[in-house]
């Protein structure tokens, strides 16, 4: 048995009195594509943000590629990691946001090479070569010198994907990557993500795009109220949901 890429065990998280994650168990195998569905406010974003420790968790544990995230075990006690160690852990985990969050003062190339050169210690020439390869891969080779504001939303999101890939992540997290896009631009981003999935990248994708889930996902996870209600192969969960909550949700988004 190989080490799972993500191993989340009884993850709990509260914001003040509001318990947002109430014991999430989820394993993601290397190369697997998991699509997370669920109504707004069910804790999908929060869970993704816990995986790369943008949010700390209050209980349970998360391992990525066998490494405990945000903490270390010393003898029988668990310690919080210092910020610089947490920062280092994030370098292996790519994340794509709903609002793209490109750096507006840097060109497309500048956005992509910022972290590889600045924190991963890549030589600038190598980083630039890799960046151009990635831009080619997301179909934006000719936009290398543009600034984010000069691009459409779909193009910006594809640059954001290239930027995350530039750190050669073992795992990619997508938080509703197409929700901020005009409908006609959704397809190009999903197409890009599909290619990544075919290339064997491990992906956890929060989305409302049922078509994408059906076509690309190895597994669909349905979350509601801070717990995983149901999971399984897309055909099973999407076509024969076992719980009423899943049925109700699917009826709404379709």
């Amino acid at each position: 048995m190989t080490t799972p890429m993500v191993h989340a065990s009884q993850v709990r998280k509260s914001f003040g009195p509001l318990e947002v994650l109430r014991g999430i168990d989820l394993d993601v195998a290397p190369g697997e594509v998991v699509v997370v569905l669920g109504p707004s406010g069910s804790g999908k974003s929060t869970f993704l943000r816990c995986v790369n420790h943008l949010e700390s968790i209050d209980g349970g544990s998360i391992h990525v590629a066998g490494e405990l995230i945000g903490h270390r075990v010393h003898g029988r006690t668990v310690h919080h990691l210092r910020p610089s160690r947490i920062t280092a852990q994030r370098r292996h985990i790519g994340m794509v946001f709903q609002q793209f969050n490109l750096f507006p003062h840097l060109t497309v190339l500048g956005n992509i090479i910022e972290a590889p050169v600045g924190v991963a210690g890549a030589a600038k020439a190598d980083a630039l070569r890799h960046a151009r390869e990635l831009l080619d891969r997301v179909g934006l080779a000719e936009k290398a010198d543009a600034y984010p504001k000069q691009l459409s939303g779909g193009q910006q999101q594809r640059v954001a994907i290239a930027r995350a890939l530039a750190m050669r992540p073992k795992l990619m997290l997508f938080d509703e990557p197409t929700s901020a896009l005009d409908p006609e631009l959704v397809g190009e981003v999903l197409q890009t993500m599909k290619k990544l999935a075919e290339d064997g990248l491990t992906m956890v994708v929060v989305t409302h795009e049922i078509g994408f889930a059906r076509e690309v996902a190895d597994r669909v996870v349905f979350m509601d109220g801070g717990v995983i209600v149901e999971q399984g192969p897309p055909a099973e969960v999407l076509d024969n949901p076992r719980t009423e909550r899943t049925k109700a949700f699917l009826n709404q988004v379709r």
Partner: peptide, 25 residues
């Protein structure tokens, strides 16, 4: 705030994020 999150997700530290991402903007 999304700018700092994006930088953090890329594995950039606080000081570097301030210098390279937040201050220039």
């Amino acid at each position: 705030g999304g700018q700092q999150e994006a930088a953090a997700a890329l594995g950039m530290g606080r000081g570097r994020t301030l210098r390279r991402i937040v201050l220039p903007q």
